[in-house]
Amino acid sequence: MSLKGKIQKFTITRGEGETAELADYEIELDEGMVVLDCVHRIQHEQEPDLAVRWNCKAGKCGSCSAEINGRPRLMCMTRMSDVVDETEDGKPIEIRPMKAFPHVKDLVTDVSWNYEVAQKIKPINGPDEMNWEFNQNEADRVQQFRECIECFLCVNTCHVLRDHSLFDEFAGPRNLVRLAQYEMHPLDQEDRIPEIKKEFGVEYCNITRCCTEVCPAGIQITDDAIIQLKERVVDRYYDPLQRIWRTLTRQKVRY
């Protein structure tokens, strides 16, 4: 069904922090629009100072995360045809900023915490010689994690952070994916298991898989990254055989 010409109502968070409230708008739709197009139309035709963060509008940069009708999604990859379908007739489509992060204004939040955690993660540490050799199967395991576009929707959805605010104890799904990417790199020599257990608090994750569900890049965050890291922590701290092996050889266990 073409949406061209349809008059659609929206209700969007306006204002800052605790004084922010929902404001109503109405625009005429065009064929094939995504939610971000509608926000831009409201900006360009009605409210120039409506704050929204976006960059590529192609699902590649992860800047325009928001909660659309209560579901965390990228505004640029959410088609209006789908959102209109899921919205009760005559009711407005609701757009709110991500809830887990400090509010800046309108649809914009402060996501700097994610960057602060990233700073604490030890970078890759591999051979000094160029022309690294590893095969495509080894690359595959890591490449999945490197598809992350840092939209932080996973962090926004994680109960440990969204409901319990354990920002000081837990690194959040995005940065656990980053840790997994390094830990599973075929040539990385660094040992990050102690901080994955302590500082980055991998054990706080109780595997509800909410992060995986909202990931626009389709990364198997829980199964392929977090559970793998949990297993490595268990192997290190709770498996006596591995402890002996490490003491004797002083080598990192390869998986």
Binding site: P48, D49, A51
Partner: peptide, 11 residues
């Protein structure tokens, strides 16, 4: 662009 300087996309 309206009067606010805070994250004012129009400005």
């Amino acid at each position: 662009p309206g009067s606010s300087r805070k994250y004012n996309s129009g400005w």
